[in-house]
Computed example of a mutant assay.
Amino acid sequence: MSDVSSDNKFAKTLPNIKRDQLDTPALAKLAPSGDLSHPPRILMLYGSLRERSFSRLLTEEAARILAHFGAEVKIFDPTQLPMAGSVPETHPKVLELRALSLWSEAHVWCSPERHGAITAVMKNQIDWIPLEDAGVRPSQGRTLAVMQVCGGSQSFNVVNTLRLLGRWMRMFTIPNQSSVPMAYKEFDDDGRMKPSAYYDRMVDVMEELFKFTLLMRGRSDYLLDRYSERNERQAKALEKLVQKI
C-alpha cells in the first residue's frame, strides 16, 4: 500500500480546491489566544422540576467536583422557562439562559429518562439555545459532558440522545458519560450522593470535562474554522463587491 501523505503527486490532484481558502493545519496554529486568566466557565442544565429532583442532585454533586477543580460553575434553574416558541425571545428566563450559554466555555447536561428518552424540561432548555444569533453561535466550540438518572435499571438512552443534540449544537462532547440507575437509592436524606461506583464515574466525567475544557480554551475559533465556510464568506464578499460596481 502506498503512503499517500508522502507522495507529492497527490498534492497536485486537487482541481476543485480553492487554494487561497485552504488552510494547512499546523501545531503552531493551536497556540491559545484571548484572555484565559479567568477560571473555566461551566454551565449546568438539569431536566426535572420535581422538588426532589435526582437529576438536579446529581448536577449539584458534579458542580461541587468542578468547583473543587477551580471552575466557575452556574446551574440554570428551568423553573418558569416557557415552552420554546410560546413567548418572545425577550422573556427574562430565555434571556438568562442565552446569556449563560454565551458566558460558558463548557456545559453539563443531566436528564432523567422518561418513556425511554430525555424529558421535555431538558429538551426545552436546549431548544431555547439558538444555533446562531446575530452572527454568534452560542454553543459552538463548547465542551459538553452528558449524564442521566434512571428510575429503574441502567439505561443509556438519554446520554445517547444528549450526544446527538450536542453534535447538532456543534459542541465537543467528551467520551466519558454517567448513567445512574435506581437513582432514588444513590442519595441520602440531605441530597448528597452516596459513595459508590456511580459516584466515582461521575467524578471521572467531571475530571475529563475539566481537562478537555482546558485544552479547548482559546483554540476553538481555529479548530472550528472551516474551508466550506471560508468559501462561503469569500463568495458573499465578492457578490457585495459586484453589486457596488
Rank of each mutant, 00 (worst) to 15 (best):
K194Y: 00
D3L: 13
R201V: 08
M169C: 10
I245L: 14
L214H: 08
T119L: 06
E72N: 02
E229P: 00
W128A: 09
D35E: 05
G218F: 12
A84R: 11
V108T: 08
E239V: 02
N160K: 10
L215Q: 11
M171K: 04
S155G: 09
G70W: 02
D3S: 14
L131E: 01
K244Q: 14
V149T: 13
L224E: 13
E89A: 15
M202K: 02
Y199Q: 10
P82R: 12
L238Q: 11
I65H: 07
L95C: 08
D221N: 15
P175D: 11
D221F: 14
S196L: 06
R192F: 04
I126D: 01
F172R: 06
M193Q: 10
S53N: 04
L102I: 10
T79C: 08
T143V: 08
V158A: 03
V159I: 10
D7S: 10
K12D: 15
L241T: 12
K9Y: 07
M193A: 01
L100Y: 12
R230H: 02
R41I: 03
V4F: 15
T213D: 13
V146M: 15
N8Q: 15
S37Y: 03
E132A: 13
I118E: 01
E72R: 02
R56F: 10
P25Q: 07
N160W: 00
P92M: 10
R64G: 08
I42K: 06
R230A: 01
M122Y: 08
V159T: 12
L27F: 14
G135C: 02
L223N: 11
L224S: 14
G151M: 10
P40E: 00
T79Q: 14
E61N: 04
I65E: 06
K74S: 06
S178C: 14
S220Y: 13
Y198R: 01
A183W: 11
G70L: 02
P130G: 09
K9D: 11
K211G: 05
M1R: 07
L224K: 05
K194A: 04
L95A: 13
V158F: 05
S155N: 05
H115C: 07
F187M: 05
P40C: 01
I126Q: 07
V149P: 03
P112N: 04
P40L: 03
S48W: 05
D127R: 06
A117Y: 04
F69N: 00
A235H: 09
F10Y: 15
A63M: 03
F212M: 14
R19G: 00
T143R: 05
K185Y: 12
S155T: 13
A62R: 00
A134H: 15
A183R: 06
L131Y: 09
G151R: 13
E208K: 10
R233L: 13
